[in-house]
């Protein structure tokens, strides 16, 4: 209903949507693994525009999730520069929300308590808190389930609840780490549509990691394609289609073919990836 009007509102001219610019410069991440240094991410440069929906796809092991953890501030040990609206990312912050692949709701709290838990650091009246919680539960379409415990919710509902919890702080950037990866295909399609609606009604920048190219293209203003060994962004695809989108759009299918071709072509360096293993054995 009001989706279309929102779509019109979401233009770069809108100053209210101006915050949420994320900048990554020459980001490099190394792990010490088995007393060997393993470069997980290297030379990573990325500019995420305010209010943008950016999808990141890549083969498993390309460091997608590591990248998201760095942006979230769960891991501070990296080289290079990550900044949100000009200030360097250090530690976690309520400005950066995160939705995990598993919903990670606390089983001993009701849906309402789980969402309110995100506001634990916020100084606000109980009434304001309740209102925020109620609004965000409504936003993800779970009104009426406020008192339900997580075990009473389906996988899709739990993931909606996790999105509500992540959004209740109105973060500048919402990070989504394969949020629908554990759901069945039908629920996934349904939640993708829902996420599009939610994104259009919020001002947040969203960065979503996925291994589902359809999902990446359907939601993303841009799709960053990553490659592994070491993890880096190969290139960024512009998806020049207005939201809300039609899954059947020919452009999406054309782009999907391109991206899939690229991801499967990177099979070649896989043999190279085996090398460290053999080397480790001899060393």
């Amino acid at each position: 209903m009001n989706i279309d009007s929102r779509a019109v509102v979401r233009t770069p001219e809108q100053p209210a949507l101006r915050s949420g610019a994320l900048q990554l410069k020459e980001v490099r991440k190394r792990f010490l693994f088995d007393q060997r240094e393993l470069t997980v991410l290297t030379g990573l440069n990325l500019d995420v525009h305010p209010g943008e929906f950016l999808s990141i796809v890549g083969p498993s092991g390309c460091g997608k999730s590591t990248l998201l953890r760095l942006i979230a501030g769960l891991d501070d040990d990296y080289e290079g520069h990550i900044a949100l609206d000009g200030s360097r990312v250090a530690g976690t912050s309520l400005e950066r929300g995160l939705v995990f692949q598993d919903h990670r709701l606390f089983p001993w709290m009701t849906l309402e308590q789980n969402v309110a838990f995100a506001l634990i650091r916020r100084d606000m009246s109980a009434a304001a808190r309740d209102r925020l919680v109620r609004e965000h539960i409504a936003l993800v379409g779970l009104s009426g389930f406020e008192q339900a415990y997580p075990h009473q919710l389906s996988g899709g509902m739990s993931q909606r609840a996790a999105i509500a919890r992540a959004l209740v702080n109105e973060p500048k950037v919402l990070l989504l780490d394969e949020p629908f990866g554990a759901l069945d295909a039908l629920t996934r399609v349904h939640l993708q549509t829902e996420l599009q609606r939610i994104w259009m009604s919020q001002g947040s920048t969203m960065i979503m990691i996925t291994h589902d190219v359809d999902e990446a293209l359907y939601l993303g203003d841009r799709v960053a394609v990553m490659q592994a060994h070491p993890g880096r962004i190969a290139h960024i695809v512009d998806v020049d289609l207005p939201h809300p989108r039609d899954r059947a759009a020919p452009l999406l299918h054309r782009l999907k073919d391109d991206i899939l071709a690229e991801l499967t072509a990177t099979d070649a360096p896989r043999s190279e990836a085996v090398v460290p293993l053999t080397r480790r054995r001899s060393g």
Binding site: L94, G97, F106, I120
Partner: peptide, 18 residues
């Protein structure tokens, strides 16, 4: 669960109790 608590910058007493 500790990661969730860190994301929301949960203070130590709440981390323990909740």
């Amino acid at each position: 669960w500790f990661e969730v608590a860190r994301i929301y910058r949960t203070p130590l007493p709440s981390l323990v109790w909740r």
